[in-house]
């Protein structure tokens, strides 16, 4: 990363940290908390699918997996909410291995469809086994991780920064290079002696773990978990966030997550027309800014100075 990138990142984080202080308002703090969580989800999706080119249409499986892990640990079994974090990382990672092993070694759309189906199946399980999962109303009354909403926000923000930093570091390393080569031509990558299946599975597990972490933070913020957290709408929203932010850049994806949730909240005043306007704005962005909004914008800024 160049010095300019460090400065830009620092300024952005400082801004995100400072905003709630000016606004002093649980509502805004709450909105930004969810924005940051969306950023974690988007970054985790981008790390696997953005780099390797294998699109994951069921990211909600990992998000909801982490959220439900937290719901069971804390909501049902009464554990201290901090225990949700390791469990909420391991469970989705394990799920990713179960789905990834059989499908990632195959070419074609099998992986994408398998992920879509797996998330839908999990969602149905959550509804069908309502005696254990609370059905459509889910599990509620969970504890917060940190009582103060500002404190909770800073913790979530710190997690976002750590997530982007870690994933970006891996993406810039040999591992990330290999993922990009897999995206370029997987067969040729194997012919270059690389065990592509291993890298795909390991990357998916990492993506799943971070998504689950975001799911845990979300569950303990909302203090409730429902089958909506496994919904295809969530999977698609995450993909849209990444595309708007700039696919493959990881930090751009995170910004896409932040922006999209902000936009959705800002449109609250439109009442019934909220989602309608939201989707129209998205379509316009996707049509006219193919590479995304955030990452290309930053690059263009740099270009004009150079």
């Amino acid at each position: 990363m160049r010095k300019r990138d460090w400065l830009g990142a620092g300024a952005l984080v400082a801004l995100l940290a400072a905003l709630p202080l000016f606004l002093e308002n649980r509502y805004f703090t709450g909105v930004f908390t969810v924005c940051a969580i969306d950023g974690i989800w988007a970054a985790s999706w981008d790390f696997f699918s953005g780099l390797s080119g294998r699109e994951n249409f069921g990211h909600a499986l990992f998000i909801g997996g982490g959220a439900y892990a937290a719901a069971f640990m804390n909501g049902k079994f009464g554990f201290n909410p901090w225990w949700s974090i390791p469990v909420g990382i391991v469970v989705p990672a394990a799920l990713s291995l179960v789905i990834g092993f059989p499908t990632l070694r195959l070419r074609g759309p099998y992986f994408a469809l398998a992920m879509l189906a797996a998330a839908a199946i999990m969602q149905q399980f959550a509804v069908i086994f309502w005696q254990y999962t609370g059905g459509t109303e889910g599990i509620y009354g969970m504890s917060r991780l940190i009582d103060s909403s500002l404190g909770n926000y800073y913790f979530v923000l710190a997690t976002l920064v750590a997530t982007v930093a870690v994933l970006k570091a891996i993406a810039a390393s040999r591992w990330g290079r290999i993922l990009r080569a897999i995206k370029g031509d997987e067969g040729a990558c194997e012919a270059a002696g690389i065990n592509t299946t291993f890298y795909k599975i390991a990357s998916l597990a990492l993506s799943a773990g971070f998504a689950g972490l975001g799911g845990v933070l979300f569950a303990h913020y909302e203090q409730a978990v429902t089958p909506d957290d496994l919904d295809v709408f969530l999977s698609i929203s995450v993909i849209i966030m990444v595309y708007v932010g700039g696919i493959g850049s990881i930090w751009g994806a995170a910004c896409g997550g932040i922006l999209l949730n902000l936009l959705l909240e800002l449109l609250r005043g439109l009442g019934e027309y909220r989602l309608w306007v939201f989707y129209i704005i998205l379509m316009l962005v996707l049509f006219f800014m193919r590479g995304g909004l955030v990452a290309p914008f930053w690059q263009r800024l740099q270009g004009s100075r150079a």
Partner: peptide, 15 residues
Amino acid sequence: RPFHGLSVRENVEIG
């Protein structure tokens, strides 16, 4: 079958 999106050097480095 080169790796698109990577440079020449990066292509070789994969090997």
